[in-house]
């Protein structure tokens, strides 16, 4: 029994460890995908790791306008993203922290991380960063209903209020019975993933000084270890949302008691698949005009609502 408990604990710690190690790799894969599609050689896959190491080795320059909030922001932001990762299941391993309603905590922890970035941006008193902050808060406010209503549809389908419970109930046979609502939710969460991580078509992570920017412009004034924390936090957030998508909505796993290493490997492969997908989207689409972004997010909310309609209508089952 004690051995079983130990095993469960060890299994649940696999995901956080993988996330902490491989999260920056997703950014590397996205960058590489974009380079290849553009016909370039591109940076090495491990480029984000090099960036992080370089930043961690630097000193820091702080604006005279800033206060302790600017310095605390990156730390609290990274810490809350790490706790959010601890709530997400992976492969067929449950999350280390799982309880009914953990999906609410997940959404609100990301909110806490966002607050830290936004306030640090406003702390600099820069017009650019204020602009980025203003857009960030509006878009995330519109993304919130899409995320929570989408998860509500999954909760109804799997009769579970915890992310790990949803993952456990999300088998291939269950999925085939409700593929339509679940794929709608998958698309909705995909849009949330792109928007929350400031990727095209919502935001372009490559143009630091253009006024189209949201996330990148908010961190203009950070440098050194602070910026490393922010970059790492952004990578982890990307990882967390992608893991949420494949963990709770898509049944990419065998799901037998002894196949968990296979499931973890399958999930890792799907994470890389999502990274490639994001890279393809970024290479083939243009960024939307700012005024069009809310429409995209409402489209995602509509998909989530539609999924719920199908759930209740029982049209599919």
């Amino acid at each position: 029994m004690a051995g079983g408990l130990f095993m469960t604990l060890a299994k649940s710690l696999i995901h956080p460890i993988l996330a902490l190690i491989f999260a920056p790799l997703m950014l590397g894969v996205i960058g590489r995908t974009k380079a290849i599609l553009a016909g370039r050689e591109g940076p090495p896959l491990a480029q984000p790791y090099h960036d992080l190491r370089k930043l961690l080795g630097k000193g820091a320059v702080y604006s005279r306008t800033t206060t302790w909030i600017f310095r605390a922001g990156p730390m609290i932001g990274l810490a809350s993203t790490i706790v959010a990762v601890l709530l997400v299941p992976f492969g067929s391993c449950p999350a280390p922290l799982a309880f009914p309603g953990d999906l609410i905590l997940f959404a609100y922890l990301l909110g806490l991380a966002r607050l830290c970035t936004v306030l640090a941006a406003l702390d600099t008193g820069s017009a650019f960063e204020g602009m980025g902050a203003s857009r960030e808060v509006l878009f995330s406010a519109l993304a919130e209903p899409a995320l929570l209503l989408g998860l509500a549809a999954v909760a109804r389908e799997t009769r579970s209020l915890s992310l790990s419970g949803m993952q456990a109930a999300q088998t291939l046979s269950a999925w085939s019975g409700a593929w339509l609502p679940l794929s709608l939710v998958a698309v909705a969460l995909g849009v949330v993933l792109l928007s929350e991580n400031s990727r095209i078509p919502v935001d372009d992570p490559n143009t630091h000084l253009e006024l189209t920017m949201i996330h990148e412009v908010m961190v203009l004034d950070h440098g050194g270890p602070d910026l490393a924390f922010i970059l790492y936090g952004a990578a982890l957030k990307m990882w967390a949302l992608a893991a949420l998508l494949i963990g709770t909505v898509l049944p990419i796993r065998v799901g037998l008691p002894y196949t968990w290493p296979v499931d973890v490997a399958l999930s890792l492969a799907s994470m890389l698949g999502i990274a490639v997908g994001v890279g393809v989207v970024e290479s083939t689409m243009a960024r939307l005009r700012m005024s069009r972004v809310p429409q995209l997010l409402i489209f995602a909310t509509t998909l989530s609502t539609l999924a719920l309609v199908f759930e209740f209508g029982g049209l599919i089952r």
Binding site: A60, V61, S63, T65, D221, G224, D226
Partner: peptide, 20 residues
């Protein structure tokens, strides 16, 4: 993280400047 940041910045240049 605060301790890590403190250790990393200890002994390095931490300067003040105007907002970028």
């Amino acid at each position: 993280l605060a301790i890590v940041r403190g250790l990393l910045l200890a002994g390095r240049d931490v300067t003040a400047s105007s907002t970028w």
